[in-house]
Design a protein around this nucleic acid. Structure first.
Lengths: 195, 195
DNA sequence: AACATAACACTAACCGTTAGGGTTTAAGAA
DNA sequence: TTCTTAAACCCTAACGGTTAGTGTTATGTT
């Protein structure tokens, strides 16, 4: 089984994209609850079963790019410059992510999410997955002597910062405020060391 | 509308309890996914619509007592002894809650939850609700000069402690470890003050 | 060319949930 | 007591997300 990047892969990706685009458009036009899976499938000109072979659930249609989020997060931890401390690197990335999703262009999508309990719940459990990935990435760093619990805790805290900041009146200031707290929390886990 | 604690209320509570008990029994006997709402309703001898007038969803049947959890949490914050600092009070309560749900008698229920994605997801969003309640309770304390963001952050962190500790190899040690971090995080939000 | 299989389609169903509309019964007013 | 109101409950039917079963097409491989 060689690297298959041929027509088949391109077609599959195109189908997936068409479904996602159609879904988002319909959701924004008519509202999430007012659009059924059968509507999306019909408008994207695919069978319902095809739709579900690309997306695990209706909610997943809205969070199509969540892999990016996870990757950026873990990259911020594992791919940082040598000797750059962990927390500031996380802070920078989360600041960027918050800026990205509080931008005006993203507002309609987040309004969609905020108004649908199903989407909010889905996003919450997505965040836990992200926190777990981040925790694994942090724990994998041999330069950090922290316990597993400490790593998982800091990962959760970082995701909390993202989530809380997004809802705050001044998101960027909130990130800074919360990361001061996280910095302090992290400091107590490495007994004798300067920042 | 006077205090109505009459026969009607008792019957209603009895019905609710019978449904919850029946549901839990069936779930433990056959597994959460293998038992349908119609099964539970039939076994409890009520109509499906009645079941849903007592519980908002199938998952809610399992977390019947979640109000208790929320109350204990907010009580720990608002009802603590005068001049008792917030964080130790929270730590005590969460330690107790963790002990309570890692007890052997609770093991089958938590196995049920762990094995069902739907239940896990539900519990996650429940925790967020609890965190919000706790945040409100903390913010209502006039003795605490913290910002809203700081209060919401600490509330989240406390809930994280509960959630992470439950999954840790040594839950009680994990609570202690995480609360040292929380204590530090809280300390930086009240500039010049002793513990 | 022949084959294996990934991607897709169609139908029908399952299951949680809700709407619509009716019956009983407790609680309070007359 | 009797009457009235509304809460609690019941039943049927449906809606909408999701999946199983089965078949078709098109792509990459031998």
């Amino acid at each position: 089984m060689t690297v298959p990047s041929g027509r088949r892969e391109r077609k599959k990706a195109a189908t997936r994209q068409k479904i996602a685009d159609t879904a988002l458009r319909l959701f924004l036009e008519r509202g999430y609850d007012a659009v059924g899976i059968r509507d999306v499938a019909a408008e994207a000109d695919v069978a319902v079963t095809t739709l579900f072979s690309h997306f695990a659930s209706k909610e997943a249609l809205v969070f199509e790019r969540d892999d990016d989020f996870e990757q950026r997060l873990t990259q911020a931890a594992t791919g940082r410059a040598p000797h750059e401390p962990l927390i500031p690197a996380l802070r920078r990335e989360i600041q960027a992510l918050v800026r990205h999703c509080t931008a005006d262009s993203a507002a309609p999508i987040w309004r969609l999410i905020d108004e649908s309990p199903a989407l909010r719940e889905y996003e919450e459990s997505m965040r836990l997955r992200h926190a777990e990935s981040l925790a694994t990435a942090i724990a994998a760093d041999p330069g950090l002597p922290q316990t597993t619990t400490a790593c998982r805790t800091i990962a959760r805290f970082a995701i909390d910062a993202y989530s809380l900041a997004r809802e705050a009146a001044d998101p960027e200031a909130a990130v800074d405020e919360i990361f001061q707290m996280i910095e302090a929390a992290w400091a107590v886990t490495c007994p004798t060391r300067r920042a």
